[in-house]
Each structure stands twice: as C-alpha cells, then as structure tokens.
Design a protein around this nucleic acid. Structure first.
Lengths: 133, 133
DNA sequence: CAATTGTTCTATAACTAGTAGACTAATTGT
DNA sequence: ACAATTAGTCTACTAGTTATAGAACAATTG
C-alpha cells in the first residue's frame, strides 16, 4: 500500500491524499521523475472514487509538485533538490507556519519544545534525502 | 480595529477570526483573563453576521482557549503561561506541523531556511510575552 | 487500431459557510 | 423587585463544498 487514509476523519480524503504525497516527496520516497499510480488504480487501492483521487492530484499540480499528462499519468515535478519555490509561495507558507506556531504557544508549549518538534520532523525528512543523494 | 479579515479569501471567515485571536494570545496581546468584544460588536466591526463570529469563538472554546458566559462574554482562559495543554493535543499538532514542514521541503526550502522561519515566528511571540511577564 | 489513462460533463446526497430572526438567560440601573 | 439591556443559544434557510457515480471524450502508447 503506497499510502493509507482515514475515511471518517475530519480532514477531507482528497486533502489526505495530497498531504501523504507531499510527505513522501519530502522524505525522498518519491523523487522528481517518479510515477504515481493512475487515478483509477489508486482509487481502487484506497476504496474511494477516482474523482476524489483526481482532486488530490490536481491540487498537487496547482502547487507545482506534479506534472500530469494524458497517458503518462502523474509524475513528480519538484522535490527537495529542485531549487527555490514559486514567488509568493514562501510568504503564504510563512503565514500558515506563524498561525500553527501561535497555536502551540497559546496552548502552553515552550519555544524550546516547539523547536524540538520542528527539528524532529525535519530530521525525519532530510535523513532519507541524504540517503538518496 | 482589533483584527482584520479577508472576506473573499480561501480561508473561512470564522477560521480567520479564530486564527487572529490565537495569534493575539500567543503574542501576549490577549493575556489570560482578557475580555474579547461581544459577538455582535465584533460582527459589526468586521461587517459580518454575529453568528460567524460566534462560530469562531466557539472553536476557541472547544480548544480550551476561551471561556464563554452569558453576560460576561468571551474571556481568554489559557495563554503561554497556563501550563501543559490537553492530552492528545500535542500529537495532533505535531502531525499538522509535520505536513506543513513536508510541504516546505518538497518545495525546495532547506532545513536551515525552515529553521530561520520558525525562529523568526516564535521570536515575534516570545518577545511580547517577556515584556508582559 | 486498440488499450490505457486523464479530462470533462451531468447528477445526487451529505455536509459546511454564512446569513437571518426569534428566543432565553444574565446582568445592570432604578 | 422590575424593566431594560446585553449577549449567548436555537432553529432555519441559501449557497457552496465534499464525495460518490456513471457516461462520454481525447490523447498517448504499443
């Protein structure tokens, strides 16, 4: 199984598909050039409709992470070694990071604890990237 | 104006209200015990329906950050100095952080750049907290 | 030419976002 | 104690989103 989802969770299925693929790209599990299963194939694997998978793929295409062709299917377009992101993206991302970190501060997490969480997450990604580089 | 919103943006208004208040709690601008405007008052300030404001307040109540009473209105319940958060919250938050950081890695940001963004955001919060402490 | 795969269209049920009005509980001033 | 005010709660409605479903179309590959 390439990825697993929670059908009855609060986050939409197409969003979960998008999130899991983003994480797989970050770990290096899906490097630039890698092919993803077809929408219909992944749909039967996950037990969902292929339109739902298509929506997740389309999100990733809009974010510049996938290239999608008629017969070639979905192919990873960017990964950790693909250079700087699109202009404007970084500001938007920084805003979302700010909100997420604010939540942690408001809930009583110390800046040190937040830093540890961040380093643990990033370490999990860059580990496999260095393996593959 | 206590906070400003983007009515036509992709993120729901009640979510924006929730996010701005979370950030205000994180900066110390809204310490524990501080009163927020009534739902109707904030609604006219923002030019939205008071039910929309109520929805944002209710989210914050569910997250344990606000206490809401009939005439007393909404009062900040937790802030950076209120001790550890509810059990289970930290795992959920760490998962969301992981997804957000994965996106940055996939888009080509280096771990160093990500760390700088994180420190810049947290510094903006803890600054005002130390002022008020 | 045929099989595969993405694309587009229509349709439908369930849920969410935002607005709206009426209602109820708690406080404040007299 | 009473009345006015204040502010959250409840029900309801419209518009949009989520997810599913099926049919038809277009392009690419072998």
């Amino acid at each position: 199984m390439l990825l697993s989802i929670e059908p009855d969770g609060p986050v939409p299925i197409y969003q979960q598909i998008r999130d899991r693929i983003v994480e797989a790209i970050a770990t290096g599990e899906l490097p630039a050039g890698a092919s993803l299963p077809s929408t219909r194939q992944l749909a039967v694997d996950l037990g969902v409709n292929f339109h739902t998978v298509n929506k997740g793929y389309d999100l990733l295409r809009q974010e510049g992470l996938l290239r999608i062709g008629r017969k070639s299917g979905a192919v990873v377009r960017r990964d950790a070694g693909s250079g700087p992101p699109d202009p404007g993206w970084e500001d938007d991302w920084a805003g979302r990071l700010r909100t997420l970190l604010a939540e942690a501060i408001a809930q009583g997490l110390s800046p040190d604890q937040i830093g540890e969480h961040g380093q643990a997450a990033v370490a999990g990604f860059s580990l496999r990237i260095e393996e593959g580089a």
